[in-house]
Amino acid sequence: MKAWRTALVILGVLLTVYGAYLMLDTVKPVKIAGVALWFLAALVLHDGIVAPIVFGVSVALRKLGRSMPVAVLVIIQAGLVVASVFAIIVLPAVYKKTLGTKNPTVLPFDYGTRLVIVWLVVAAVTAVAIATYLAIAKRQKARPSISQA
């Protein structure tokens, strides 16, 4: 394992240094400062905003759902995560479309409406998943199987 680790570190350092060289060679210093600014913004946005919100929502859900089965809570969280990931990918398109595109074949859809529809579909699927889980759990409770004994 030692040899692999050493080889990976050497490879990694070489590639990183080459990337840094390419940056210095092809991008003006003031633009590199722009890259650094976006690096910092990315870390602040994730570690300082997105992650704490996720944590807060998760604690709040556990507090609110103290009487719910854990699996139901997990299904609700899954629905929220899928809806949020769509928001992250699609909301920039919604905003860009309001600024105008270079021609009508770029961003041809009504992304805002589509996002809302997909959110509703996610909510419906989440509800069906919860109902299915509860129905199965109820049946298993009524007739305990060997594995649960």
Partner: peptide, 27 residues
């Protein structure tokens, strides 16, 4: 989306960062 709201050129930076990413992945 053909949208460039960032203060650096896309093509050059995308290319250079790919090496930084894969390098730091190896590390």
């Amino acid at each position: 989306y053909q949208w460039y709201p960032f203060p650096f050129p896309f093509k050059q930076v995308h290319f250079a960062l790919s090496f930084v990413m894969i390098g730091s992945l190896a590390i």
